Amino acid sequence: MLNTFQQSEHPMLVQSNHDQRARQEFVKSLKQHIQQGLLPSVQSTYNTRAVNAYTKKHQHPPKDYRQAREAFQDDPIFKAYLSVNRISQELQWFSVIDALDDTVESLEQTAKKLPAAGGSLQIPEQFTVPKYISELDIHCMPGGYCGPKGASPLHAGALYDRGVYLYAMGYMGPNNDDMGRSVCNYITRNNPDFKPKRILDMGCTVGHSTLPYAEFFPDAEVHAIDVSEACVTYGHHRAEGMGVPIHFKQANAEATDYEDGSFDLIVSHILLHETSKSAMPKIFQECHRLLKDGGLMIHADLPPFDEMDAYTQLILDNETWFNNEPFWTAMRNTDQIALAIEAGFAKDKVKFDNAPMAIMEIAAAAESYSEEMAEDLADREFTAGEYAPGGGWEVLVGQK
């Protein structure tokens, strides 16, 4: 899987020289080794040494991530894994920053010369970014989603665009759009007659997941919002450079200024685990307000802990402990169905479901591609591991 998909070129993608590219490929390979090379040994050690010792002491094996951490936290194998995993996370950003520093001025010039694709960018004169976003280097990204103070307005978006591809090790596909593409596939299969005219993507960052909606629903007007001015600015130029008309806007999903019933479809992609526990109910309420009758709300993220064994919970909980993901665990412990009902969605109109990863389906249908690509895909094992457990995205679906 390691190099099945390289990131597709587009006018706003940060350019790297040979050495910088080699360093980035090393980081991607290291992350792959951690998941496919180290994690099996970590799990084997947990299942034997840690579980046996904990069971002997408590007369039962660990039941959840808290007990699993108690059982495993002092084990040298676990500590070694945590150390290497944290280093790889920091390296993924640093491997891009050098190239970005060398090319950010040229990206600014490119942005000024892009032909119009029909999209727009709206930045309000006064806007307050929530402190849980502005004051935190989320997932160890220097400057977080808003970027370092004083940096180019394209810095955070360009860093995220390349960095998240390395983090995903290619699993997001050539355009980093697997989540959006997977949800679009889910909609067309489960609601084939649903033809939204206005779509809103909440917490869009740079619009990776937004663009497939313009492809799948070409008659729809697609809007994308995020609290980060840097992300929506870069996202706008990225979409224009790729020839896709998207209307980007700096706005908070907790309270937008769109009118009631403005949208037929509201989506988000890994927004919920990046937002605070107090903000999540407000986001659900805003979704209900903004949807037309019969409209759909779909939030794509990762499964709640109650669907996992204690070891898997532990590995994922490490994102909160060691990767600057403060809301990751809280989101997994939140009753999102109850929040949706409290926001106004009928109980029988809300459910969790699974949207298979589009890239996994590409692998399964490899015979429909060129012979060379089919052979390449057929020889590779698509095991999402930590990245997307079960090979799909958990989707919370609500209909108004």
Rank of each mutant, 00 (worst) to 15 (best):
T205Y: 07
A230I: 02
K197M: 03
Q89V: 11
I246E: 05
L91Q: 13
P40L: 06
G143R: 09
M308T: 06
M373N: 04
A230P: 06
D161T: 00
A355R: 05
D102L: 11
G391E: 09
R23W: 11
L339I: 08
P115G: 00
I298V: 14
H155E: 02
D348F: 01
I298F: 05
I298Y: 05
G203D: 06
F263R: 00
Q89H: 11
E367A: 13
A220G: 03
H60I: 09
N252C: 11
L272F: 15
I199Q: 04
V183T: 10
V164M: 12
A384Y: 15
N3S: 07
Y145P: 02
V14T: 14
V350T: 05
N85R: 15
K56L: 13
D264N: 14
F127E: 05
D98W: 04
V206D: 02
N333V: 08
I138A: 12
Q35P: 08
A99R: 01
F352D: 10
T45C: 07
R380T: 05
N252L: 11
F345C: 04
P389D: 05
D201N: 13
A340F: 06
S88V: 12
K282P: 02
L121D: 12
E274C: 13
N17G: 07
L91A: 13
L166T: 11
D226A: 07
Y171A: 04
D19H: 04
R162Q: 08
H10V: 02
D309I: 08
V222C: 06
Y132F: 10
G119M: 11
G203E: 02
S95L: 00
E254C: 15
L302G: 12
T205A: 14
N333F: 01
L39V: 15
L272N: 15
P76A: 08
L2Q: 01
P389N: 03
N323W: 04
Y258N: 14
R380D: 10
E105C: 04
T312K: 07
D348W: 01
C140L: 10
I225V: 14
G147F: 06
E229S: 04
M280V: 13
E9C: 01
R380C: 04
T320V: 07
E135Y: 02
I87A: 15
K79P: 00
V14P: 14
I34K: 10
G385Y: 00
Q32M: 12
Y186G: 06
L291H: 08
